[in-house]
Simulated assay, not measured.
Amino acid sequence: MSLKPAVNKNDHAQGNLKSDLVIVEYGDYQCPYCRAAYPVLKELGREFGSQLKFVFRNFPLSEMHQYARVAAIATEAANLQGKFWEMHDAIYENQENLNEKFLIKLAKQLNLNISQFEKDLQNPELGNKVDSDFESGVMSGVNGTPSFFVNDKKFDGSARDLLQIIRENATE
């Protein structure tokens, strides 16, 4: 399967934004497998961040994970204040505490404007962005989280497998 749509300006990206090597993760903030992949992806970023572009798309499995969608919306609300990745990391690092009140606590720790953040959590446009990410995952063949794409092609493996392959290719 290939990525639909291709990575674009609406995506959250970090690393070398001009890189030819593009990794996309579809993730769920309450998924234990995404939480397990998170430190591996951080390691990937530390080792190869200057050589790759990393993109995160929301894929909240709301039927299984009560707080996945609100957490995704919270990252989008934080993004409006320039702190998407900070909120993304804080949620994964504290996943066991995840609930609506805890998201407000994280927003305070990140020095976000809380009244604006709370207002943005209710903004239907942010919910639409999360839904759009989810729909793009469905169109791209995502059927679980985390799911990875490397240069628009679905990668069938774990974050650890991904790191290993990139390490091997980097030494060639």
Rank of each mutant, 00 (worst) to 15 (best):
N97P: 00
G27I: 00
A36W: 00
K119T: 13
V24C: 02
K101R: 09
L41K: 12
D161P: 09
N99K: 09
F134T: 04
W85A: 01
E118L: 13
A36S: 12
G15A: 05
K108T: 11
Q95A: 04
I73W: 09
G157D: 04
E172S: 11
N16E: 03
D152W: 02
R160H: 08
V55R: 03
N8D: 15
E63I: 12
Q30R: 05
G144F: 07
A107D: 09
I166F: 12
L3M: 11
E63G: 13
G45E: 11
L110K: 05
S132G: 05
P146T: 00
V55W: 03
M64N: 13
Q122S: 13
Y38H: 15
S62T: 15
L80E: 14
V22P: 06
N151V: 09
E125V: 08
N79F: 02
C34K: 02
Q109M: 05
F48P: 07
K101W: 00
A71E: 13
N10L: 14
P60K: 00
P146S: 03
F84K: 03
G144Y: 05
A6H: 07
N111V: 01
S158E: 07
Q30T: 03
G82K: 05
S132I: 00
L162C: 03
M87R: 08
N94W: 04
Y38P: 03
S136A: 12
S115H: 06
